[in-house]
Every structure is written in C-alpha cells, then in structure tokens.
Design a protein around this nucleic acid. Structure first.
Lengths: 243, 243
DNA sequence: CGAGGGGTTGACGCCGATCAAAGCTGGTGG
DNA sequence: CCACCAGCTTTGATCGGCGTCAACCCCTCG
C-alpha cells in the first residue's frame, strides 16, 4: 500500500464557545439526547464546541487525552497507522455519532487517529463529565450501547462490503456507502480523495482512479458541482454484486 | 469467492441443564460477572446451558429469537452470507465473550449467523432476563459496553490485519490471530479448515492451502498433534510486516 | 510564471483466481 | 477386513486483474 509519512498535518481548529447542551437545538441527535435539561446544571467539567478545518486532526492514536467527541456536522475518518507508515481507514463517522468511546471503557488512549474530511463541527466532552452523568442517569448507558452497536455494524459492513471482491466491485460498494452516508440531505455526495478511497478498500490509488474514471465515462457517476457527485445506485448495485 | 450453498447443516445440540449462575465456577469470566449471587433469585426467565457439536448452528442471521449467548468453552464464527451465497467470516468469538448482543439494542433479529467451530459450551440467556437485571443492576451496562468495545476492537483489527496485503501476509496475520486466540492455554492452536480461513481473509481456498503448505515446508508452522499446530511467531511477524 | 500536489492514463510483470486432476482421510457398508 | 466413496487438501497450468513505475495533465498557490 502507500507508505507516505505524515506530511505537515493541518491542525486548524477554532473554538466556537462553551456548549449549552440544555439549549442545543440538535440535542436529540447528539450524545446527550436522552437527558433532561436539568442534567447540565452542575457539570464536573464543561463541554466545548469546536470547528475543525478539513484535514485537521481531532485526536491521534495512542495519545492520552480524556475527551470524547460528538459530531454535529461534517465527516470524520478513523485511521489506523501501522508501524511501517501504511495507513488504513477503518471507519467513516458522521453527524450524531461519537468518537473516542473507547475511553469510557478503561482504555487509556485512543485506538485510532481521527481526522476531519471536510469542515467538522463537534462537541468536546470530558470523560469525567460523561461518567458523572452516567451515574446520575443510567439511561445514558443505553445511548453508549447504541453508539457502539452502530459502529460495530459499520465495521462489519466494512469487512463484508469493502474487503472482498474485485477492485471494480469494491469501488462500486464504496460509492454506495458514500451515497448512503449523505442520503439524509440529498442524493449528492462528496467524492473523497483517491488516496482516502484507496486506504478504505485496500487497493492502489491508480486503480481507484481508473475505476472512478470508468464509472464517469459510463455515466454511472455524474459530477453535479465542484466535487459533488450523484450516482446511479441501481447500476452500481448490479456491478457490486455481479458474480 | 466460494458460492457453495448450505450443505446439510449439522445442528447437533445437547441440553446440559439449567444454569445456576450463583454457583457458576467461571462466573467472573462470564456475562454476569459483576452481579451478586442474590441477583439470580428471581429471574424472569431461566438461563440454560448447552453443548453444541462442531459445525452446528447456534443461530442464523435474520431469525427473530430472543436470546443472547455467553460462550463458556470453544470457538464460534460469526458469518455474513450475501444474497449470492458468498459467505464471509466477520469475527471469531471465544470463551468469556457474548454473541447476539445486537438484540439488547432494539435489533429485532441477529445480524450474523453463529456457527460452532469446535465443540462449544454456552449459556443461553433470554433477553428479558438481561433487561430485568440491567434495570436492577446498572453495573451490568458496564459489562455490555465492555463486550461491545472488545468486539469493535476485534472488528477493527480484522479490517487492518486481514483485509490488506498480499495473500502470504494475510495468512501470516491470520495464524498470528489464531495463535493469540488460543494463547491462554498453551502455544498450540487448532488450524481451521482452508475454507474457513479463505472466508476470513477474502482469498481463494487454493491460495490459502499453498501458503500454509509453504509455511509448513519452511518449518514456520509445525504440526504437534492431530490438527494442533505451533508456529514461529517471530518469523510470521516478519513475513506479515515486510514491506 | 514556476512549483507542487492531486488526478488520469499507459505499459509491463507478477500475484493470485480459476479450472482441473490427483493424493489423503475418515466413514460406510458389503 | 477391504473396497469404495465423499470431502478436504495439495499441486499444477493457465490467464486476467491489478500493483508498480512513469509520464503527463490540470489546478491552485506563492
């Protein structure tokens, strides 16, 4: 695979302000969805809101911080970097999901690196605050369980869909995943860099490029805007599953 | 991949008896490890213990049962079967781990099929019983979270180690995984069928066979007993990571 | 304007899928 | 007890897909 060492990593982060969960207008999507407003009156440590620029690192694998992050907007990749510098994207995380949950479970450092793909808007929640709220409101456990189960399903889907088949099938599957990922808003989705796509499905960058180019030529993949695309899902499904 | 339809599935199951969790001598390994003995006095529905023969199905994906299973002994494979009959092994589960946890989270059917690899000894726990105990003893949530997090880590490891690299590297990684899986007892481990190994790492059966044969010839993999093997982990690591 | 990064395309060689056939093993029944 | 068979494993031969190296294009930014 590709063995590029980290180029200068952009870590452009902007502090938006203290989060006021009791007044959050998307709270039902977020990590504290089940809690009553009163839960936030005496937090051990405050929750802060940040905006990360595209490409900036949210946290790095192995570092011993004590925060989990709930994604409000944008798309995050979880990356595993091997000793030899090879890195593999293990999961894509979007709005409403949380990352760094391994810290809630005795882990003393993050298991992956988390990097913003586009501009990401998130809440940074201290672990002690989560633990405090868990003890006061056991229903929060339900939410953690839900989050973990969802991510486990994602990981399994990753193994099944993106880890087998020919290069063309995998790219088709990947496009379907991206399409579904953005489905809430509209049919359009952001096409990732070829390098990211290659790191997701474990094939060479050039091969990804060839397949994408072929799909474009066959009008299975249309460009609608700058790097917004639409795809013919029926056709992609056929390709992904043939033989 | 291989598209064999289900041959006659062996479902040889033997009921061992009612489980008495309060007297279980391996309870600290099991699903109810944190609970006091008194917790089991008034269970909504009883916990039963079973022995599954090698190859027998514990549950099938999509079926609407209401039980989770805690593995006492043996090895279980979680299998995803695609529409075209292709099946892929998504995870290996061993003693102390639980399967079917998706039911605790609103899922109305199992996400995978679970099949015993060798003889498996397990406890069959009704979901209502778990929910009852969860409400009485919130610390049980911690254990569920732990289980899910462990399985998520396994899935990620699967993606990283078994989903990339050459066929030789993947087989080497797989042997290392098997070795670690059995590490508690001794160095020896059971070598799976070529078909299972192929379904884990997404390559052809014949290729797996070739690689295994090559490792045997190079004395990196020794047969010690019937189908018990030992491996030279240092050498395998070198192979798995080279370039 | 040049430099640099990402994307596309071409040429080539090797890895691994596929098809085919031949050991090997355990189980079954005569 | 042996013959036979079915299923698994091994090995060989062939061919296509894809990784690799390399050149070129396009766009952005200094």
């Amino acid at each position: 695979m590709n063995k590029e060492l980290d180029k200068t990593v952009c870590t452009n982060v902007e502090w938006v302000g203290r989060a006021h969960c009791d007044r959050c207008h998307i709270r039902r999507l977020m990590f504290f969805s089940e809690l009553p407003d009163s839960a936030f009156e005496h937090l051990l440590q405050p929750v802060d809101q940040f905006i990360h620029a595209a490409g900036s690192t949210i946290f790095e694998a192995g570092t011993r911080k004590k925060f989990i992050y709930s994604i409000r907007r944008g798309m995050v990749k979880l990356v595993h970097t091997a000793e030899d510098g090879t890195n593999r994207i293990v999961r894509l995380i979007g709005p409403g999901s949380a990352i760094g949950l391994e810290l809630l479970d005795g882990a003393d450092s993050y298991h992956h690196s988390a990097i913003a793909i586009n501009q990401v808007d998130l809440c940074k929640i201290p672990v002690p605050t989560v633990e405090q709220l868990e003890s006061e409101y056991p229903e929060l456990y339900q939410h953690v369980v839900q989050q973990l189960q969802d991510q486990l399903d994602l990981a399994d889907q990753w193994i099944v869909a993106l880890g087998a088949g020919t290069a063309k099938q995998r790219v088709a599957q990947l496009l379907l995943v991206l399409d579904k990922f953005f489905a809430e808003n509209n049919d359009e989705f952001i096409l990732l860099s070829r390098e990211d796509m290659a790191a997701m499905i474990g094939i060479a960058v050039e091969t990804v490029s060839r397949m994408i180019a072929e799909f474009k030529r066959q009008k299975i993949l249309y460009k609608t805007d700058n790097n917004l695309y639409t795809c013919n899902t029926a056709e992609l499904l056929k390709i992904a599953q043939q033989d």
